[in-house]
């Protein structure tokens, strides 16, 4: 077993003076090259789990290691420049052009302009963004295009790790499906380690190598999509994970009824 690229050990983080836990004595190791989906109800601690990986949030106790190094060993902004992060609300800078948005992290790292321009065009092609939108402002783009920019921005400085917080939550189903597949393809071709939060179990099943289910700051289930879909001792987990299959069966039933009709 290779060395984990992300290792969280007995991490806790609480709000309201310990009344409510976002992370409750949580441990998690992620192998390089894995696509992990984190699912769970709202308030289960998914986003906090993602944020402690690049120090957008700090743990109260426990340790978080990225590439073997404790995250607190270096300044947060340096860590964050080396980890790609796609925000739930996209969070594009409204006053910067699409190209400037994508090139922001390389610029902070002091790349020269020619190198940044080349990288931006490369990324536009990679996320299937037409070249002619690069000079526009984010507000002039469709929701799907904006999220492509968000993904390109996260990947600009060639990070080994990509963290995504419900990246496709606000998109229509068709765009969502297409973008999901493309991200999976990028994950493969770039050799990324990807952690994606989603509330859509079907998306998790279709995209991830590994699914982590959270409840009240703890991991209640952790395994491959196959293993979780085919049954789990925890009733809630089972109910959640069986959802895609039940829906698929209902769709099949509808189709059969129509063809017999």
């Amino acid at each position: 077993m290779s060395q984990p690229i992300i290792a969280i050990e007995r991490a806790s983080k609480s709000y309201r003076n310990g009344q409510q836990f976002a992370l409750h004595d949580l441990s998690l190791e992620i192998e390089p090259g894995t696509f992990v989906a984190v699912v769970g109800a709202s308030g289960s601690g998914k986003t906090t789990l993602l944020k402690v990986m690049n120090r957008l949030a700090e743990v109260d106790s426990g340790t978080v290691r990225v590439s073997g190094q404790p995250v607190n060993d270096r300044p947060g902004h340096e860590l964050r420049r080396s980890v790609g992060y796609v925000f739930q609300g996209i969070g594009l800078f409204p006053h910067l052009s699409v190209a400037e948005n994508i090139g922001i992290t390389p610029r902070l790292l002091g790349w020269d302009s020619a190198k940044i321009d080349a990288r931006v065009e490369e990324l536009a092609d990679l996320v299937a963004l037409p070249r002619n939108v690069l000079r526009r402002l984010p507000a002039e783009l469709s929701g799907g295009q904006q999220q492509r920019v968000g993904v390109a921005r996260a990947l600009a400085a060639k990070p080994a790790i990509l963290l995504m917080d419900e990246p496709f939550g606000a998109l229509d189903p068709i765009t969502r499906d297409a973008l999901g597949s493309e991200v999976r393809r990028l994950h493969e071709s770039l050799g990324l380690t990807t952690v994606m939060i989603t509330h859509d179990v079907l998306e998790a099943v279709l995209l991830a190598d590994r699914i982590v289910v959270m409840r009240a700051g703890r991991i209640v289930a952790d395994g491959s999509p196959q293993s979780l879909v085919s049954g789990h001792p925890d009733a809630d987990v089972r109910a959640m994970m069986e959802m895609p299959r039940r829906q698929a069966e209902r769709v099949r039933a509808v189709l059969e009824r129509n063809s017999h009709g």
Partner: peptide, 13 residues
């Protein structure tokens, strides 16, 4: 917009 502020931190500013 707090989302934009968080994005600024997130990209490493």
């Amino acid at each position: 917009d707090p989302a934009v502020m968080e994005a600024a931190r997130g990209v490493g500013m």
